[in-house]
Write a protein that binds this DNA or RNA. Structure first.
Lengths: 203, 203
DNA sequence: CTTGCAGTTTACCGACCGGTCAACTATCTT
DNA sequence: AAGATAGTTGACCGGTCGGTAAACTGCAAG
């Protein structure tokens, strides 16, 4: 009862996991509370609504991801190797999730964005915001690559959005086929989009 | 009461529209019936469950799309022009839907696949099946393009899946940003993936 | 000792969910 | 005319939904 935020944090974490594995509509407040070991009254003490909880859970999940992304996209790493590392990280994460849950779950932001963008403005906006942060990492890597003469794509921002869209599309393919093999094409596909031999990005 | 299938067809059509504009979980059987001018009892006379209706609605919607795709990907049209025509068709369709509904709705298969692939096997399978049919059109066009020496991508099947994944990713971006402008990059992005100047696919 | 506050618990609300059922109607067949 | 058949209707089911309200608990400051 003292520990300032254990309950709130547990709620955020469980909510994102359940929504990721199922969907927003299919997960009830009651279920989130049950798995978090919390009573519904406490839930509504911390969050005014299911939608608000979801937005908060998305932001909390971003903070977790951010640490990993900062490492993957470290300026210490050569620009194209950063992108290769991202591809590998995506594959590993999907593999781990599949082993944990038994099914390919894709990206939680894709699930939320696809399901709720037309229905819940707050969630739509948060999804767009977080996705924008992802593309910023790609854009920075591409800018560095261009400065070093490693790639000759036109606008780094546009190319970053293309790479990110491609990765989301493949992630959705993997989820829909409940099969990780489409992700094997993530790195080669990105290499092709950068006008490189697959080797370059795989280095 | 005589017209053999008017009710059933109306149900299929309304269901796909509502799910497209909202989501599977957010649309109730009652609401579908109301908008179709049908009572719930009749619904369950034609379909054993909401899930079965959805699968049938997906297939019915595919049949509509199939006609358009057969025209767009006609062997009469030069292979790369088919792909350009597809890009244009996607943009026009999204524009029309936005004008009709007020928001960018993306692709109904993306919405359904992202929301339900981990929860409803029948819907997941149908989504995968229909998406596979889409990529087949791309694959055929790419095979023709290679035969005519217009493109030099490696495996047409793999490239087809890449193009399709990219288009789905962009569609999701548009939905999440509630903005059609990301779709402007559909044709140039595909051209880049085919190793062409944007002009070639735009011809 | 007591007041106040953060957090928790329990019980409860009306609304709606997907789905069922038996009765009804209209048409075609014999 | 009688029956069979396809389609339709409205009433109803138990369960669950998101959300609310009030009482309670532990602890810290006055």
């Amino acid at each position: 009862m003292k520990p300032p935020c254990e309950t709130k944090g547990k709620l955020l974490q469980v909510a994102l996991r359940l929504i990721w594995e199922n969907s927003y509509g299919a997960v009830g407040v009651e279920e989130i509370c049950r798995e978090a070991g919390v009573k519904k009254g406490s839930f509504y003490y911390f969050f005014p609504s299911k939608s608000d909880l979801t937005v908060a859970a998305m932001e909390a999940h971003w903070e977790d991801q951010r640490a990993a992304l900062d490492r993957i996209f470290s300026p210490q790493t050569p620009p194209l190797a950063r992108i290769a590392a991202y591809c590998q990280s995506v594959c590993e994460r999907q593999e781990a999730k599949k082993k944990e849950y038994g099914k390919v779950c894709g990206c939680p932001m894709v699930t939320l964005g696809a399901e709720l963008s037309t229905q819940d403005e707050a969630i739509r906006r948060k999804t767009a915001e977080i996705m924008g942060r992802y593309t910023a990492y790609f854009e920075a890597a591409l800018r560095d690559a261009m400065a070093q003469g490693l790639s000759h794509c036109g606008d780094p921002g546009a190319t970053a959005r293309r790479l990110f869209a491609f990765s989301q599309g493949l992630l959705l393919q993997a989820k829909v086929h409940n099969d990780l093999s489409p992700l094997a094409d993530l790195r080669p596909g990105m290499a092709q989009m950068l006008g490189l031999q697959a080797r370059s990005v795989a280095a």
